[in-house]
Amino acid sequence: MMGEMAEPMAAGAGAAALLRDFSSWMISEQKRVYLLCQRMLQDREDADSATQDAFLKAYQHIRRGSQEIDDPAKWITRIAVNVCLDRLRSRKWQFWRKRPAPEDETLIIGGAPESRPDAEDRIFASEIGQRLTAALDRLSARQRAVFTLRHFEDRSLEEIGSILDLDVGTVKAHMFRAIQKLREELRDVYAYRTLEGRKS
């Protein structure tokens, strides 16, 4: 589908078809891209605007038709991650920024409450999620990108490397550092005191 979309935009009907194709593709990727931005930026408004920027860049690229896109999902992930990295870098200067609201933090890592009907489990998972989210602040922009793509999207280190334009060795180094910085929180997430263990 993206092969067709990558054709240079023709006038009239071609433009309409391109927009139609783009719109349906955007619907299929939108939620995932937005969640990725939200998890990287930890701010709802910022993530909303970053998602818009990512799709806008994608559309402009497709309209120019400069190159064939083999894997559209990976391609839009790459665009979104780069938009987020730019924003995280410019945040370094925004010392007036506040921490994300607690409800944002729950949304970022808390997971889907529907899959855990038990109230105690929900609270437990939400607490861990909030701690892990707060801890993501300690990671550099690249470490956060690497960790987020692995933790939430379950991507291989090779895929992460191709999304971020890094070799696997560098991805590994970023991941090691990220895990080191999140050691305590991750131990709590995966402690033997699992949800089942707590019930018994």
Partner: peptide, 30 residues
Amino acid sequence: MIARKRQIASEPEIPFEFLAAQRRAIHRRL
């Protein structure tokens, strides 16, 4: 542990209205 990770990292619900408004904003900018 893999199961635990999937559980913690599962996708939360995003309100349909929010996503629709976001798409409208993108279309406006296009």
